[in-house]
């Protein structure tokens, strides 16, 4: 179990390759990362999928930050890059940055395993804590989902009457959302002003209510929670 602070304590230097085709965003990322130069080193900025894959071979970074929609096809190059890297360089963490709040891409990113993958909204790249947390998590094999993506989902599911989420208490829902973002128990405890023990109790009860197995590996726990929020409601009732 690795929390962000533990990773930072090791004073690891993250060697990055960044892929983003839009100039303005690229410059934004550059400014954001320049702030962190004692912790982060950017080896190359790439404008498309091919140059990204080539740069990875050349520099062997430990983290890749990539846009989803890039040349050549402007569809899901970022996801494809993440899939390809899991195959060839499983040790490299990938932070996919996107303008889409849609969980579709997050789930697609996790389709072949969630370890070392993060899904971050582009507008939060400037948010120092979120960005660095994502980089640290994926480098350590963890998973992160932008809280906003989870919020949107939870909100929609809560609007739906009869939703399984409605069986949870408000506190349990908040904890579940935290789990889905990839936050550690400690981080959840901190953000909700709870004790770590209380968070663990909530997790146990909500996972029992939802019939989910609480996986000790955070990355898998994230995926299970996210999948549950996004889809389980739907699939579960499909044979009704």
């Amino acid at each position: 179990m690795s929390s962000a602070s533990e990773v930072a304590g090791r004073e690891a230097v993250y060697r990055l390759v960044v892929a983003e085709d839009a100039y303005l965003i690229r410059e934004g990322i550059r400014s954001a990362l320049e702030r962190e130069e004692d912790e982060v080193e950017v080896l190359e900025y790439c404008p498309d999928l091919d140059s990204l894959l080539r740069a990875v071979e050349e520099h062997r970074p430990n983290v890749v930050i990539t846009d989803i929609r890039m040349p050549p096809t402007n569809t899901d190059e970022g996801i494809r890059a993440a899939t390809a890297l899991r195959e060839n360089h499983p040790e490299i963490g990938v932070v996919v940055i996107s303008q889409y709040v849609s969980p579709h891409y997050a789930l697609k990113l996790f389709e072949h395993g969630s370890a070392g993958r993060a899904y971050l909204l582009k507008e939060h790249v400037g948010h120092r804590i979120q960005l660095m947390e994502a980089i640290r998590e994926v480098a350590a094999g963890g998973s992160v989902v932008d809280p906003k993506v989870v919020d949107v989902l939870v909100e929609a599911r809560m609007r739906a009457k009869n939703s399984l989420l409605a069986r949870l208490s408000t506190r349990e829902r908040e904890v579940l959302a935290g789990v889905a973002t990839g936050a550690s128990n400690a981080a959840i405890a901190e953000s909700l002003f709870l004790t770590k023990r209380a968070v663990e109790k909530n997790i146990n009860s909500l996972f029992a209510k939802l019939d989910l197995s609480d996986d000790k590996a955070t990355s898998r726990r994230v995926r299970a929670a996210l999948l549950f929020i996004a889809d389980s409601d739907l699939e579960e009732k499909s044979d009704v």
Partner: peptide, 27 residues
């Protein structure tokens, strides 16, 4: 919806279902 353009009906409708405000089963 960009998903409809990029990935077609199934993916786009799945996304619609995720955000739907009614209890929904999918096939």
């Amino acid at each position: 919806p960009p998903l409809l353009a990029d990935e077609g009906l199934e993916a786009a409708l799945r996304e619609v279902a995720r955000r739907a405000s009614v209890a929904l089963t999918l096939d």
